[in-house]
Amino acid sequence: MIWAVAAALWVSLASGVYLCLSRDVFRVALGLAVVGAGVNLALLASGRLGSVQPAVVPKGQPFLELASNPLPQALVLTAIVIGFALVCFSLALVLGLIRDAGTDDALELRAAEPVPGNDIKPPATDPAHEPEWPPEGRA
């Protein structure tokens, strides 16, 4: 069992990192989700995987031997919920970014970091990407 989990962990981490290295921002977001799934597996494996018996037993009944530890299961549930929220956010963000910037190529996304046109001096930011001055309604 533990070897199957280890193999799954390896596959999800490797494929997730591979996707993250892509220039396509949508693939990066997906890759992060896959890496997150792999890490959740690791968290789950940190409590034993030995048994499928329930960890919580009714009062009076004997303690189950080789039952898996319920704490990592609770932890992994928390991590899944948080990861879910982050995946939601990253998808919404990537969608908006691709729509507004008109490209999904990470190398062309230079709105926050303009490309220097000069070897020595840093580029001046495009005024369209700066806060509006003077602030609305003021001279």
Partner: peptide, 13 residues
């Protein structure tokens, strides 16, 4: 509330 907000925002796009 939170997840419905996310989902509806995505659907609205």
């Amino acid at each position: 509330g939170a997840l419905a907000g996310y989902a509806l925002a995505l659907l609205a796009v």
